[in-house]
Amino acid sequence: MAELIERDNSGQTRGPLFYIGAGGLMLAMAVEALAVLGRHAGIPLLGALEIIQACILLMASAAMLSATLNKGHATVTLLTARVGDRTRSYLHAFANLLSALFFVGLAAGVLWLAAESWHDYEQSELLHIPFRPLRIVSLVAAIAIALVFLRDMWRSLRVRA
């Protein structure tokens, strides 16, 4: 997963995740700008909200995975700053385990929804955007995030040994 994020000399991250998220943001902004211009011109852009929702899914998935890979999630160090190295590594491992379990549960829910509606061919109302690929993106992102947290848990425990 290291190739999903690359750092340049200034420490900025670039890679496929960055460009997926940025592309989703740019597309959402362009669609919304066209929708606003169209409303003012009396030519509404039907389905703009559906496109924006699909873009948000891409942005959110890329952002969560990128933050997890960069260890960029918010943390509170009130307790871990006051304990020894061994206890700190156990607490980090425990936090990573809980985070992984959360995303495993999220993935299970997405998988359940996808399995229940796989043969129904769900799609959006106006533009008929299929939901299957969007659910697959959600599932892959949740599983990838859970795996990163499990990897970090393993590393926290190995540092202790």
Rank of each mutant, 00 (worst) to 15 (best):
R86I: 10
T87Y: 04
G109F: 02
S61L: 07
L46V: 15
L46G: 13
S124P: 04
R135T: 03
S66L: 14
W118D: 00
H119W: 05
P44Y: 06
R135G: 11
R39P: 07
A67Y: 01
Y121I: 04
I143W: 00
L49W: 05
A93P: 08
G47A: 08
G38V: 14
G109H: 02
Y121A: 08
D120P: 00
G105N: 11
R82P: 07
F102W: 04
L101N: 02
T77H: 07
H128T: 12
L45Q: 03
A107Y: 02
A146Q: 02
A48P: 06
N70S: 15
A108P: 03
F131K: 04
G47D: 04
I51N: 06
T75R: 15
G105I: 08
A62L: 05
A146G: 01
C55S: 14
L97E: 07
R82L: 13
C55L: 14
E50D: 06
L127E: 03
S99H: 09
I145W: 00
A67G: 14
F131P: 00
A146D: 09
V76N: 14
A81F: 05
G42N: 08
L37H: 08
A93E: 03
L57Y: 05
T80W: 00
P133W: 02
A107T: 05
T75Q: 15
A48I: 03
L79Q: 07
V110E: 08
R88Y: 00
V110T: 15
R86K: 13
V83C: 13
L69G: 06
L78D: 13
F94W: 06
L45A: 00
L98D: 06
G72D: 03
G38S: 09
E122G: 10
I51L: 13
M64F: 12
N96M: 09
A93C: 08
C55W: 14
H40E: 14
L78A: 15
F131C: 01
E50M: 12
I52G: 09
A142Q: 02
P130M: 03
F103N: 07
L57Q: 13
T68I: 07
D85W: 01
A144I: 10
V110M: 06
G84T: 10
T68W: 13
L58P: 05
S61Y: 06
E125C: 03
I56R: 13
L134F: 09
I51E: 14
L57I: 15
A74M: 11
A62C: 10
I129A: 06
A63P: 00
G42P: 09
C55Q: 12
H40R: 15
L127C: 05
A144R: 03
W118M: 01
A74D: 08
V140E: 02
R135N: 07
S66R: 15
L78N: 08
L46T: 15
E116H: 04
D120F: 11
E122W: 01
R132V: 09
Q123R: 11
T80G: 04
P130V: 04
L69M: 13
R39V: 00
L91H: 01
A67P: 02
L134R: 07
L78F: 11
